[in-house]
Design a protein around this nucleic acid. Structure first.
Lengths: 210, 210
DNA sequence: TAGATTGTTAATCGATTAACAATC
DNA sequence: TAGATTGTTAATCGATTAACAATC
């Protein structure tokens, strides 16, 4: 049965994708919900519910074809395509993201970097050119960019965002610890590092334990 | 009324903390659940439920005292203390974390860095010394370290973790896209950057749109 | 006192688990 | 056919929303 993917299931899909990607398909081609449950720490029941939530992938008595299931999840996540990205703010975080392995092989490609520092502008990093940030909007419009990665300091984010006049659907992957409020065609995904650290703190010392 | 903080509420606490920290308390000292709901994008009803979930902070007719509420949330998150941290793996991600602003002022302090690269070992970064990773376990035991930040490549994580023999409760903030399975005294918080990027992809192109 | 806003109960909604019939 | 394992329904659990009495 096919219905809308629920939010809880969507949040878990990247994890399924990761585990399935790491499975060795040379020995066995299928995996059962029980095997997955042991590896991933979900209940087998939840896994069957989840997968049934958006497609018919299993075969009774056999389980799920690992490779096929991985492909279907990739499709559901919209990862059966290339995403052209630009990075804004070539500081320490920007540098870490540009060098992060495992984006390119999932179809996420950096096309350009933007900064305000003239000592950086004009250079290129692994063939990715660095331009002045004032050229950002123009570049995004003309080069079919799908995702803008924001690694500028918190204080600058609003200025950068203010100058964006994109009309089509576009993703913003934001690393500043600020929640952006933008028009609906901007799809904002935040990475709040300090939120993550606070949750760790809670689990270590929080008033109600775990 | 005071009960155990539910998981959903705990996940939202860092966000409350962030918004309350950014509020200007020179003009007004209190904030109502309605005002918070507009700023944060939760319903006012949920905010009252959340805050009542772990304490009695509000005053009928007035709202919540911003400063006091922030302090109480910090306490609930276990942030009314200093955490001593070490970083393992001084690469691009490690460098980004060491330079990330806003950890120190929340009581998270880096005491040492560990790596295997002899061209780095012996140096120091802003006064934080870099040691060989074989000294990690010993250092953590002797220097009252609460949190180990793992910014080593995915392939090395298991080796690093294998050599840890800590018996007391300790946090692991893991940046490798691998789910660690450790003894119960290790509290593992993962930062899965590629999961976040996949969720952005879903919201842009996913099969069921948003 | 009157107005504002919380604290709290009840209703609704969504997510997870349990169980088993369907079927490979 | 017998065994394994999914798909799916029903039961349970938890989280959110709505409503309003309590109270500052």
């Amino acid at each position: 049965m096919k219905k809308k993917i629920s939010k809880a299931v969507m949040m878990r899909l990247p994890r399924y994708y990761r585990y399935l990607s790491e499975m060795d398909t040379t020995e066995r081609e299928t995996v059962s919900s029980h095997q997955l449950s042991v590896a991933m720490g979900f209940t087998a029941s939840q896994i069957r519910q989840d997968l049934n939530n958006f497609g018919d992938f299993g075969v009774q008595g056999l389980g799920y074809n690992i490779e096929y299931l991985r492909e279907q999840i990739a499709k559901a996540l919209g990862m059966d395509r290339t995403n052209n990205m630009v990075l804004v703010g070539y500081g320490n975080v920007g540098n870490a993201i540009i060098n992060y392995p495992g984006f390119a092989n999932k179809g996420f490609r950096f096309k350009a970097i933007f900064d305000i520092d003239f000592s950086k502008i004009g250079k290129d990093i692994y063939g990715i050119p660095i331009y002045h940030v004032e050229k950002l909007n123009d570049y995004v419009e003309r080069n079919n960019i799908n995702i803008i990665v924001l690694t500028v300091p918190k204080t600058v984010v609003k200025d950068v965002v203010k100058n964006l006049k994109i009309k089509r659907k576009i993703g913003i992957w934001n690393f500043a610890s600020i929640d952006l409020k933008l028009k609906d065609n901007y799809v904002v995904e935040n990475v709040h590092l300090s939120d993550s650290l606070m949750r760790l703190s809670y689990r270590l010392w929080g008033k109600n334990g775990k």
